[in-house]
Simulated scan of single mutants.
Amino acid sequence: MEAYLIEEMAAEAGFTKAKVIKVEQLVFNADFRRYCEENLCGNYGDNYSCPPDCGTPAQMEARAREYENALVFQTVCEVENMNSQEELAGLKKEHNKRSRAFIRRLKEAGLTGLPMLAGPCDLCRPCRREKGEDCAYPEQISSCLSAYCVQADKMAEACDMIYWGNGRQISYFSLFLYH
């Protein structure tokens, strides 16, 4: 499928902007793994899509580099209160919900690939990992850009997308890597 058609599909799905780039343009920085290890989001070791279960930075990068193309799609949101974790979490959840639906559409159109979302998998709350149970959705699980150690500011720059908003905006990114 042609890149421009995929980008048009993303616009129709409600994303602010979408761009297909080569996976080789993505910058991976293994130093970012420390943010996961600090466990600020509370998912380290408690979510199958997160470290350490998802793999080492080297394994994650190798998995991503198996693909040729990266569809980067973004939602830019106006925010009432940047200090409201509830508001930010709601906006991210909506972005990820739309991302999953869009990825299903891509797969229905015949594209197979590797998804990355804005934040950890949240298909089950709490993740079954916490109870020592197997993942309920192994075919849908997706790790976040942070777990892959993707340098999102460089990615946004390569795509001519907003990374830092005007103080009242936040950008959420998802990727779909494919051949």
Rank of each mutant, 00 (worst) to 15 (best):
E2Q: 00
Y4V: 04
L5F: 10
L5W: 10
E8C: 04
M9T: 08
M9Q: 14
A10I: 05
A10K: 01
A11C: 08
A13P: 08
G14W: 05
G14T: 07
K19M: 09
K19V: 12
K19F: 08
V20R: 14
I21R: 13
K22H: 11
K22Y: 12
K22A: 14
E24C: 10
E24S: 15
Q25N: 11
N29V: 15
N29Q: 15
N29M: 12
A30P: 10
A30E: 10
R33Q: 15
R33C: 14
R34D: 15
R34E: 15
E37V: 15
N39E: 04
L40P: 05
N43V: 14
Y44Q: 00
G45T: 01
G45E: 00
D46Q: 03
D46V: 00
N47G: 02
N47L: 04
S49W: 00
C50P: 00
C50H: 02
D53E: 10
C54K: 01
C54F: 00
G55P: 07
G55N: 13
G55H: 04
P57Q: 13
P57F: 09
A58I: 05
Q59S: 14
M60N: 05
E61T: 11
R65D: 02
E66K: 06
E66P: 02
Y67M: 07
N69E: 03
L71E: 03
V72L: 14
V72Y: 06
Q74K: 09
Q74E: 11
T75E: 07
T75A: 13
E78N: 11
E78R: 07
E80F: 03
N83Y: 13
N83W: 09
Q85H: 02
E86M: 14
E87F: 13
L88G: 10
L88V: 13
L91G: 13
L91M: 14
K93A: 15
K93S: 09
H95L: 13
K97C: 08
S99I: 06
R100L: 07
L106Q: 15
L106M: 15
L106F: 13
L106N: 14
K107P: 13
K107I: 11
E108M: 12
E108W: 09
L111F: 11
T112F: 13
G113W: 14
L117N: 04
L117K: 01
A118F: 00
P120A: 06
D122W: 05
P126L: 03
C127V: 00
R128Q: 02
R129I: 04
K131I: 01
A136W: 03
Y137L: 02
Y137N: 08
Q140S: 09
Q140R: 09
S142E: 00
L145W: 10
S146T: 00
S146W: 01
A147M: 04
A152V: 12
K154G: 03
K154A: 07
M155E: 02
M155C: 08
A156S: 13
E157V: 03
A158F: 01
D160T: 01
D160Q: 06
W164Y: 12
R168V: 11
Q169T: 08
Q169M: 11
Y172N: 11
Y172W: 11
Y172S: 07
S174D: 04
Y178E: 05
H179N: 05
H179R: 04
